[in-house]
Amino acid sequence: MPAEQKSEIASVWTRPRRQREQLSREQIVGEAVRLLDADGLEALSMRKLGTRLDAGATSLYRHVANKDELIELVVDEVYGELAVPAATGPADWRDAAARSAYSLRAMILRHPWVASVLGQVGLIHLGPNVTRMSERMAAVYGAAGFPAEETEQALSTVISYVIGMATSEAAYLSLIARSGRTEREFAASLRGSEQGSGEREPGDEDPARAREETFDYGLQRVLDGLGVRLTAI
């Protein structure tokens, strides 16, 4: 084919949707998310996904060119789960920022694989959900009073904290799942080990609540720091 006749698709978001096909992009993305949730990123392949959809890999390639495009799609799909409340001004920005952070944490814990692929998603060709939610989160910090040149930095600081903490939590929960025990049973076994080594028993607290309290403590301290910065602007 002559060079002038070649049509290169720059991004999955500019790829035209195929109509009247038995397999849709939505079906592909939905099944890919379920595969990732169940088996992790290492298990994702076009061949395995095609098998789960009872379709050949060739059928998938009509909608996505490669695994990288598929990752862009699934990341955008789960970003659509975020709940980002609006902040109307300096008085309510902190509550909106905290609720957004909790929503991001919850999404990562539902889809532990997402944290490890965020860096793979092209920063030029962002999907509609990632774009919309990023803009909504940035607006929260803009409403707080951060100047335009600091809004993204403030948002990135909070997001980095959330991703770091949630990734650690997700790894811990995966370890528990592989053990075949509940989180409370796993925590009890750790307390038993500590007692055996002479450590003081920390008490029979709810481990899920303890994780949330730890997350919230760090989040509030990050927001404290941003609040101090606002007073200096």
Rank of each mutant, 00 (worst) to 15 (best):
G80C: 02
G80S: 04
E185W: 06
I163R: 09
I159L: 12
G218W: 10
A143W: 09
A188C: 10
R99A: 05
Q220Y: 09
L44S: 08
Y141L: 13
L230S: 12
Q22H: 13
R99V: 00
G40K: 06
L44T: 09
E152P: 11
A87I: 06
R132I: 05
E72M: 13
T131Q: 11
G40P: 05
G180W: 03
A106Y: 01
A55C: 10
V84M: 00
P128L: 08
P207T: 01
A86H: 13
A188R: 10
S197W: 13
G50K: 13
L226Y: 07
G203Q: 01
T151I: 14
E213H: 02
G198P: 03
G89L: 05
G80A: 05
E77V: 01
G145Y: 12
A98E: 04
T182Y: 04
R229E: 15
D204G: 06
T151K: 12
E31P: 06
L175A: 13
A144D: 10
P112G: 05
L23D: 03
E69K: 10
S134I: 04
K48Y: 11
M107T: 02
G198D: 02
I9G: 09
R221D: 12
G142Y: 11
E42N: 14
T14F: 15
F215H: 02
E81H: 00
L41G: 09
G218Q: 08
V74G: 01
E21Q: 14
L104V: 05
M107A: 03
D224G: 08
L109R: 00
S193I: 15
P2V: 08
E135R: 13
E169K: 04
E26L: 06
A115I: 04
R132K: 10
E135D: 15
T58S: 14
W113L: 03
K6E: 13
P85R: 01
V222R: 08
S168N: 14
A98Y: 02
I176E: 08
W93S: 06
L70P: 07
R191E: 03
E183Y: 05
E183D: 09
Q153A: 15
G198K: 04
A98P: 03
G225F: 06
E199T: 15
A96Y: 02
E31L: 07
M137L: 05
V84E: 00
L36D: 03
A65I: 08
V114G: 00
A38K: 13
R47Y: 09
A210G: 02
A232L: 15
